[in-house]
Amino acid sequence: MTVAIDRATGKRRGDRAPRPGLGQRLKHSYQKYWYAYAMIAPVVIVLGVLVLYPLVYGLYLTLTDANSLNTARTIGVNHIDATYKFIGLDNYKDILFGPLSYDRFWSHFIWTVAWTALCVALHYTIGLGLALLLNQKLRGRTLYRLLLIVPWAVPTFVTVFGWRIMLSDGGIINSFLHMLHLPQPSWLEDTFWQRFAAIMVNTWCGVPFMMISLLGGLQSIDASLYEAAEMDGASAWQRFRYVTVPGLRSVSSTVVLLGIIWTFNQFAVIFLLFGPTSAPDAQILVTWAYYLGFGQQPRDFAQSASYGILLLAVLIVFTSFYRRWLNRNEQQLAI
């Protein structure tokens, strides 16, 4: 039995001698790799059953007009068979180009992109700033670190309710603004302020992860690089620009990608902050798709699933470009 451990030398397929016939190849690869395949089999099976099958089924549903009135269901002892029918790509056509598609899809799409960009930018800048501060020799550093990760330690579904009470009319934030003689927006009712509040709460929730990851990155930068830079007379800004930034690059590219995916898919913050039905304009695509499929009557399963597929497509395209872009810059993604 040959050993397949090759220490991730990056040996690509295809640098072997002339290819034997297909049957031969299958047999060879079975003999050589059967234990690798045996080891990944559990995950392959689980993913096949729990992800691939629902995904295919979901794709099929997007090609139908399924909703809660025509899918198979059981009421009491009566079983009603499904009566939805195949309508091809009409759902996608309707979502992307149909009447009112701007209000139903594109406005949410633009808001989702803005939300993702703003949140991740805020997470990253604030996280980096705090990480830089925590990376100095400072009295009480550990205490600060422990306090600053509170938003991450407490489950989001708990803290969002805290924010909801704070932001409500007459809540502490508006009382505070009143004390300062500032205008008191109705955070949970006006579209603009809803969006503002959503970004604020999500930023609060997401900064600790960025901070801690970037702090880890900062601590792994070799101190002698800073010494050398200082010897060469580099100013604080130059040290940051030419030592810290390149040193953080691999951590940054990973956490930014994770941040983008998580923020794009962020469900709990918006759903819990505004409740399931209010704030239609502050819904990002994920919560909007949820609303279509489960928050309204009749439930529109087909449209909801189509939104889901579109969202996934956006993310996959984005990630592919991101990886390609990283590879071009000779970086590898460390997830």
Binding site: A4, Y37, A289, Y307, L312, L315, T319
Partner: peptide, 29 residues
């Protein structure tokens, strides 16, 4: 181990992590 299909498999693992809830919720339901 490096086996044929390794990169595709890793890609699948990565992609499944970015499934929005909306993708699987309807069919799962």
């Amino acid at each position: 181990m490096r086996f044929p299909g390794y990169r595709k498999f890793m890609w699948v693992l990565l992609v499944t992590q970015m499934f929005p809830v909306a993708v699987l919720m309807v069919p799962m339901y």
